[in-house]
Design a protein around this nucleic acid. Sequence first.
DNA 1: CTAACTGCTCTATTAATAGTATAACAGAAC
DNA 2: GTTCTGTTATACTATTAATAGAGCAGTTAG
Lengths: 127, 127
Amino acid sequence: MFIQIEATSDIPIYTQLANQVIELIARGQLQGGDTLPSVRALASDLSVNMHTVNKSYHELEQKGIIRIVPKSGAIINPIVQYGMSRENRQRIIERIRPILAESLVLGMSLEEIEQLVSATLSLLKED
Amino acid sequence: MFIQIEATSDIPIYTQLANQVIELIARGQLQGGDTLPSVRALASDLSVNMHTVNKSYHELEQKGIIRIVPKSGAIINPIVQYGMSRENRQRIIERIRPILAESLVLGMSLEEIEQLVSATLSLLKED
DNA sequence: CTAACTGCTCTATTAATAGTATAACAGAAC
DNA sequence: GTTCTGTTATACTATTAATAGAGCAGTTAG
């Protein structure tokens, strides 16, 4: 698990952590069935508090990305193709919408924005 | 100016406000040269504190979307086509990247994501 | 079986952020 | 000249982020 936390970032540590786990899954370096390190182990590894890692794991669980088995560990859910619920889809739109609006206002064309999205998606698939 | 604030939202008021101004500009309902209401007027209008509106305006100024003339008012900058700086572009990517990664992990295909982006961009252009 | 490890809970503290509130300053607009 | 403007300063409350330590109870490995 290659995870790096930037302490100076304005992004909360537990969000940075969740985002990086998500990227590892998107990239295939973590797969359904794989287990995440214990909250204590990862906290120690990152020099971060146990509760911070715990909060991160629960955020991932709430998103439906992992499941947490009490007294045992955190397991990555398999990616369900075509399993995107309307709620999830709506949540994604609400998060992406202000960013797209800002891109338009900053002078990007529709084509430029779509190209930026494609490029970023490709980036996520690289090793 | 049709702006609505959701007090119960987990999104800060000043962010909601800035996002809605940005959408109004993207939609063409606000154009370069137009002025925003005074911080006091808008604060009173939205039943919100003056400092909250002030913070919102400064966020918009920092993004390069408006300029604030001291003792005068806030004026919307014209949209500069092809004026997207590398810094702005990078900032957009960093914000959109974790959302795209999550979409992939939740089971969306590349095509579905690109379609969702296009649909959201169209939504932003509607009246 | 025992010991180590696990997620979970509880309590506490510190620091930062969001929002409100009031007041005052000085320039702009009418 | 009065009103309105953005700006600054201070203060207070509430919430969140992060750390810290302790303990509980189930799981797992030796």
